[in-house]
């Protein structure tokens, strides 16, 4: 069934062992409170999360896929930016 006048929301979940909120999907809801409830019901049914963010999809500014070349290709030839040229001591742990 169509859901007229119901804005789209992007859902972010922080999992039990996760460090940051991760995008998990989107949903329709008339306002932020209902979006949060719907996110709880749709995306945390199997114990996935400890925290939820919902963001209006319209608030997201996205990069243009047509500008892929200009945006991302210059980084691809610069392998020296990857920290693979030195050994990380074990004591440093998770980086």
């Amino acid at each position: 069934m169509a859901t007229p006048n119901t804005p789209l929301w992007e859902v972010f979940i922080r999992s039990r062992n996760g460090l940051a909120h991760k995008h998990v999907g989107s949903l329709h809801a008339s306002d932020a409170t209902l979006a949060l409830q719907a996110a709880r019901d749709i995306y945390t049914r199997r114990g996935e999360g400890l925290s939820i963010w919902v963001v209006p999809s319209s608030a997201i500014t996205a990069s243009d896929p047509a500008e892929k070349g200009m945006m991302f290709e210059p980084a691809e030839s610069k392998i020296y930016r990857h920290p693979t040229f030195y050994d990380v001591p074990d004591e440093v742990g998770h980086m």
Binding site: H28, A29, D41, I42
Partner: peptide, 12 residues
């Protein structure tokens, strides 16, 4: 249900 989101909520 009137919308998918509510369908899930009611079933939950």
């Amino acid at each position: 249900a009137p919308m998918l989101e509510e369908d899930m909520a009611l079933a939950n």
